[in-house]
């Protein structure tokens, strides 16, 4: 469904430097039983966030009040594994609007773009810079500028540009989704289907 528009986001960020975080960690399978899209944020990173009795695990970053914000800075190969879009719904529902990593899994990245969470791929060096800056000062503000395609550490001005395809960028800025586009192509699609 159409989602929030994304242009410029300024926020503090939550660091999660673990590598190869798969979507089974982001939202474990046993929480996929809903038939609606809301409420997945409660179980975001469930098994890292809570122990078996449901008590918050103190050492997990989402339970550490020092860190907050709409940007998640994640380790390499984020979002691998299962194609469950629920993983992105959970991130969105929790309040994240942007995920930064030096490497994303393909389907996860697509799912993000489809529901309006911006995946920003940075160089490994810039990811390290972000982790260091956030560790030194959890209130560090980060700006993600979609029109300019830049991500900037506001305190130091350290900045890097990121790639996004023009079509997806336009969609994100206007809160459009692919279905709107496809529905407008109905006649062409019908012609193609009939020829098969």
């Amino acid at each position: 469904m159409a989602y929030d528009k994304f242009t410029v986001l300024q926020s503090t960020a939550v660091p999660l430097p673990t590598e190869n975080v798969d979507t089974d960690q982001i939202i474990p399978a046993r929480f996929l039983k809903a038939t609606e899209r809301e409420g997945f944020g409660d179980n975001l990173f469930r098994d890292w966030r809570y122990d078996v009795e449901g008590n918050p695990k103190k050492d997990f970053v989402l339970n550490d009040r020092t860190y907050s914000g709409k940007i998640l800075v994640a380790g390499k190969n984020f979002g691998s594994g299962s194609s469950r879009e629920h993983a992105v719904w959970a991130l969105y529902d929790y309040g994240f609007r942007c995920v930064v990593s030096s490497f994303f899994a393909d389907i996860f990245k697509n799912n993000c773009l489809n529901i309006g969470v911006l995946p920003v791929t940075v160089s490994p060096e810039f990811a390290d810079l972000l982790f260091t800056a956030i560790a030194a000062d959890p209130n560090t503000a980060v700006e993600v500028n979609l029109p300019q395609q830049t991500i900037t550490l506001l305190a130091t001005g350290a900045s890097e540009s990121f790639d996004i395809n023009e079509y997806k960028k336009d969609n994100m800025q206007h809160g459009f989704d692919d279905i709107d586009y496809l529905i407008n192509m109905a006649a062409e699609i019908e012609g193609f289907e009939a020829s098969r």
């Binding site: 194609s83 879009e85 389907i107 697509n110 489809n114 529901i115 395809n165 279905i179 496809l182 192509m185």
Partner: peptide, 22 residues
């Protein structure tokens, strides 16, 4: 290949998805 739920919706609605070639 696998797709997300937004794309499941696209296929149901239009029999198409929007994907860049790998």
């Amino acid at each position: 290949f696998g797709i997300g739920t937004s794309e499941v919706e696209m296929v149901l609605a239009t029999q198409c998805i929007m994907q860049s070639k790998a």
